[in-house]
Simulated assay, not measured.
Amino acid sequence: MQDPADMAPEDLSHAGSVVDKAIEYMMEQKIAPISIASALLGGALGLLARTMDDRSVAAVLRNALASVESGELNEAREQGGPNRA
């Protein structure tokens, strides 16, 4: 099975920008960061479930967990940005 990171579509950057703007807007609306994150995660899981088989969804989730465990989120915290809580 191919690594999900290697399957990133060309429009990933655009999609990421749209999500960042949505997060920024929700933060301006004083929505709690945990509520924003939970809604985004739920929506993402729903989309994955509708477009991938369970094995592929699990691979995406393993990749995300590996990012957390490797410290990639610490790097993101240090960089800041609109999705920083």
Rank of each mutant, 00 (worst) to 15 (best):
residue 3 D to E: 06
residue 19 V to Q: 01
residue 80 G to P: 01
residue 8 A to R: 15
residue 4 P to T: 02
residue 48 L to W: 06
residue 46 G to K: 07
residue 20 D to S: 03
residue 67 S to G: 11
residue 77 R to C: 08
residue 44 A to H: 05
residue 18 V to S: 02
residue 68 V to G: 07
residue 84 R to A: 10
residue 16 G to S: 07
residue 11 D to A: 09
residue 24 E to C: 03
residue 18 V to F: 01
residue 71 G to H: 02
residue 50 R to M: 14
residue 9 P to V: 07
residue 23 I to L: 00
residue 8 A to P: 05
residue 63 N to R: 14
residue 68 V to Q: 13
residue 26 M to P: 03
residue 13 S to W: 08
residue 71 G to V: 03
residue 36 I to D: 01
residue 52 M to K: 13
residue 35 S to G: 07
residue 61 L to G: 06
residue 81 G to H: 00
residue 55 R to T: 15
residue 33 P to D: 01
residue 65 L to P: 11
residue 43 G to D: 01
residue 15 A to P: 02
residue 12 L to A: 10
residue 23 I to C: 00
residue 28 E to N: 02
residue 2 Q to I: 14
residue 76 A to R: 08
residue 37 A to G: 07
residue 49 A to C: 13
residue 27 M to D: 06
residue 30 K to D: 09
residue 30 K to S: 14
residue 82 P to C: 08
residue 45 L to C: 07
residue 28 E to W: 00
residue 73 L to I: 13
residue 12 L to R: 05
residue 11 D to V: 05
residue 35 S to T: 04
residue 19 V to W: 00
residue 67 S to P: 07
residue 17 S to I: 08
residue 18 V to M: 04
residue 65 L to M: 12
residue 42 G to S: 09
residue 43 G to L: 01
residue 53 D to N: 09
residue 34 I to H: 07
residue 3 D to Y: 07
residue 56 S to T: 13
residue 73 L to Q: 07
residue 36 I to A: 01
residue 75 E to W: 01
residue 83 N to L: 14
residue 21 K to V: 05
residue 45 L to W: 10
residue 24 E to T: 01
residue 39 A to N: 01
residue 55 R to Q: 11
residue 67 S to V: 09
residue 9 P to H: 13
residue 16 G to I: 02
residue 67 S to D: 12
residue 15 A to Y: 05
residue 72 E to N: 12
residue 16 G to C: 02
residue 32 A to N: 04
residue 2 Q to P: 11
residue 16 G to N: 03
residue 57 V to Y: 04
residue 22 A to N: 01
residue 7 M to R: 08
residue 67 S to R: 12
residue 45 L to K: 12
residue 68 V to N: 12
residue 3 D to H: 11
residue 55 R to W: 12
residue 5 A to M: 09
residue 32 A to Y: 00
residue 61 L to R: 09
residue 79 Q to F: 04
residue 46 G to W: 06
residue 65 L to I: 14
residue 75 E to P: 05
residue 9 P to D: 09
residue 11 D to W: 04
residue 36 I to E: 00
residue 76 A to V: 15
